[in-house]
């Protein structure tokens, strides 16, 4: 599925126990999100880059994902340097670019990229069902895990319906033009997308119920902690502490 783009691979990170990945991922993401220090964020970014490099998650695709993140960051760079008060570094008559604004933009950009890299390198290299199973092991409430899994599953369902309907429109000769017909077709498209996705999600749920689903995510190939998992957890804990001490 499209949300599991990076989960298929043979790297060291792919082979790690998903519980360990989550155990390492959560503190790093929280640390990155909460810190106000540029140096700490930069160190976390370097760690994220090294991890993503280790995971070898399809270079081009990784850059594409980061491009999406940085597309939103571009809007930030257009406004923040001019709206935060501080030492002026560039004066464009009615607009003043400040040093503090630039630093804040840089900090947020680094944080966003770091979290994206960690997400791709750690949970991204496991399947969603494996992560759901791991979350239950880490005592995350069943309802939260079920919500997480169903969100993922139904986003997939909606995506599939969107693709199928798009293909159907093309096959029947639809071309988007400027006119009432195009607007009406798009309105039908959106309406039908919701109706079909809803009905399909009902069928998916019924199929789960008939196979005894009760909010657990059992797996045939169960996790077992290997020495490499322990080594990874220890090394990453040491890295996290070192970054904190910076």
């Amino acid at each position: 599925m499209r949300l599991e783009t990076f989960s298929d691979g043979n790297s060291v990170l792919h082979a790690l126990d998903p519980r360990v990945k989550l155990f390492v991922y959560l503190p790093f993401v929280i640390l990155t999100a909460l810190t106000g220090e540029l140096l700490v964020t930069a160190a976390a970014l370097v760690t994220g880059l090294l991890l993503a490099g280790t995971a070898r998650p399809y270079g081009k695709l990784l850059l594409k994902r980061l491009a999406v993140v940085n597309f939103f960051m571009a809007f930030l760079w257009l406004t923040l340097p001019f709206s935060v008060e501080g030492e002026t570094v560039l004066n464009l008559s009615f607009l003043k670019m400040t040093r503090e604004g630039l630093l804040l933009s840089l900090l947020i950009t680094l944080k966003a990229n770091t979290i994206a890299l960690f997400t791709i390198a750690l949970p991204g290299t496991s399947t969603v069902i494996a992560l759901s199973h791991a979350m239950l092991h880490l005592r995350i409430p069943e309802k939260v895990v079920t919500l997480f899994y169903f969100f993922y599953r139904y986003i997939g369902v909606t995506g599939d319906e969107y693709e199928k309907m798009g293909q159907m429109l093309k096959a029947r000769g639809f071309r988007a033009l400027t006119g009432v017909h195009t607007v009406r077709v798009y309105a039908y498209f959106i309406g039908m997308l919701f109706v079909r996705s809803y009905e399909r999600s009902e069928r998916v749920y019924n199929a789960l119920v008939m196979r005894g689903f009760e909010g657990r995510f059992p797996m045939l190939l169960h996790f077992s902690l290997q020495p490499r998992d322990m080594v990874f957890a220890t090394v990453m804990s040491a890295v996290a502490i070192s970054i904190l001490l910076l």
Binding site: A130, R200, R203, N206, A207
Partner: peptide, 12 residues
């Protein structure tokens, strides 16, 4: 068994 297998498949 559901008519549409895609409704039923669930795991990775």
């Amino acid at each position: 068994l559901f008519q549409d297998p895609e409704d039923q498949l669930f795991c990775p």
